[in-house]
Design a protein around this nucleic acid. Structure first.
Ligand SMILES: [Zn+2]
Ligand SMILES: [Zn+2]
Ligand SMILES: [Zn+2]
Ligand SMILES: [Zn+2]
Lengths: 165, 165
DNA sequence: TCTTGACACGTTACAGGATAACATCCTAGA
DNA sequence: TCTAGGATGTTATCCTGTAACGTGTCAAGA
């Protein structure tokens, strides 16, 4: 596993790492409390890991960090925590990358649209409301009822567009 | 592997199986010829398999059939054929399903939008032009240049909508 | 207080998906 | 004919994901 070679930030714009990480955690607390769900230590730590990394992590990368924090080191531990967080809308799964990333807008109901830079692996979560509407319109023509949509685009982020050939 | 329990057609509307399968193969021939690419026996058979199945197949399902047809029985054989076909625009990869499906509109440049029924596993390829445009518009706001987009929706197909609770 | 059931956590074991690396073969073009 | 590139085949291994089962915890209800 190439633990190196992963620069990538989670949004294209610069911003206060620590702040957005802390805010994410606080919102998670609030959200879970509001819904009577339990943000247990493993779950909490899993979210923290994703917030700190500030990019998409594979389940096994998360697992490795959980293990070194003294939590169970077997795959189901990570997958269960990630599933819980996804169900709570705190984490998104990015299928194209077989990876998970902390949500940038927890609490707000929203359709995410992921922009993945193929050069620096940066990942941004853009608002996908319009796109979602277009999907539903297209689906409606065949009578299909959309429940969930995964919208993932690859290309070049602003920085790489400038640098790259 | 549950070889049973997979009814699913590749489009929601009924249509002439054999005809669309043959047509697909013919178009593939033409397309490869036009581009000087070689539609070799494995590649051809792989496409045939997907056209006949008329639904999304995992690489290992394809592989199994290739093997029983006397072709190489190791994963790379299937993956290479599938990659080639995808590059030629004859096959799409559906990441949500870890599977591949024959393209319904080979030759025409198009953005595919996949509609996946969660109940009967039917898969339809809808025209995604509008959706793609919406994706690009959203991406443009952050300066991101979209190269490829995977658009996959899950929900209920018309038939299952009627039957299901 | 004692049961009992729901839920989280942990582990084992395995299934399923994908690729790196190397050997062989075929085929188009010099 | 010779040769370089592409296509196939094989081995081995890695990454991703899940089924199944046991244990501990906590709170509601007997
Ligand atoms: Zn989000
Ligand atoms: Zn970039
Ligand atoms: Zn298509
Ligand atoms: Zn259906």
């Amino acid at each position: 596993m190439p633990d190196t070679a992963i620069p990538a930030a989670c949004a294209f714009a610069d911003h206060d790492h620590a702040a957005c990480s802390a805010a994410g955690l606080a919102q998670a607390e609030a959200l879970c409390a509001a819904q009577g769900a339990r943000l247990t230590p493993v779950r909490r730590r899993t979210l923290e890991i994703l917030l700190e990394a500030h990019r998409a992590l594979g389940a096994y990368e998360v697992l490795e960090r959980l293990r070194s924090d003294g939590f169970g080191g077997q795959p189901p531990v990570a997958y269960r925590a990630l599933e819980f967080l996804e169900a709570m809308g705190l984490v998104h799964r990015i299928r194209r990358l077989n990876a998970f990333a902390a949500c940038m807008r927890p609490g707000e109901a929203h359709q995410a649209l992921f922009l993945i830079c193929r050069r620096c692996e940066a990942l941004a979560e853009a608002p996908g409301g319009r796109v979602r509407a277009a999907v539903e319109a297209a689906a409606a023509e065949t009578g299909f009822a959309v429940e969930r949509a995964s919208l993932e685009a690859t290309g070049l982020c602003p920085a790489c567009r400038a640098e790259a050939p």
